[in-house]
Amino acid sequence: MEDEKIIELYWQRQEGAITVTEEKYGPYCTAIADRILHSVRDTEECVNDTWLAAWNAMPPHRPSILSAFLGKLTRNLAFNRYARNRAEKRGGGEIELVLDELAEVVSGSEDVQGELERRELVREINAFLQALDVKKRNLFLQRYWYAHSVGDIAARWGMKETTVSMALHRLRRDLQQHLTERGFAL
């Protein structure tokens, strides 16, 4: 079913919306959650939470790209669950490596970040992404948004893992420079 029709089902409050969403985007959302949570049970629960969140969001929201909208919900829910699990000393998987890499960009200081600061940070990250060429942008997001492994990305692009790692290193360095130049206290 086309995305516009699925969204319309949500707006009409038809429960079949969740079924068709699950059929079409279940594997996509499951893959996103699994790379963060690394647990079958947690992933299932997280994806179910995604459908509920989508139901609560539409209406009033009308996403322009349904897949990315659902992906964002899944990623946020999975990361929140990951943070809870880590506090309970559970979890692991690719996300640990992704966070270790991002630790290079920031100081790690536990400053309080308000919603305004977060919005500005998001805006600058999007400006950084916009300035990249398509390939570099996709590499960055496949690693730091989707949490794909370096090996998966290398296979996807027909590159060696060391080449992908090097490209990611340069992107992290560029992001750090971009944010520092714009006054962010990293």
Binding site: P63, N76, L99, L102, V106, L141
Partner: peptide, 18 residues
């Protein structure tokens, strides 16, 4: 800033990029 805050903010990437 923590790595978790940065990861969270990257989650706000524009949907066409995602």
């Amino acid at each position: 800033m923590t790595k978790e805050q940065l990861f969270d903010a990257i989650g706000g990437a524009e949907e066409n990029y995602i």
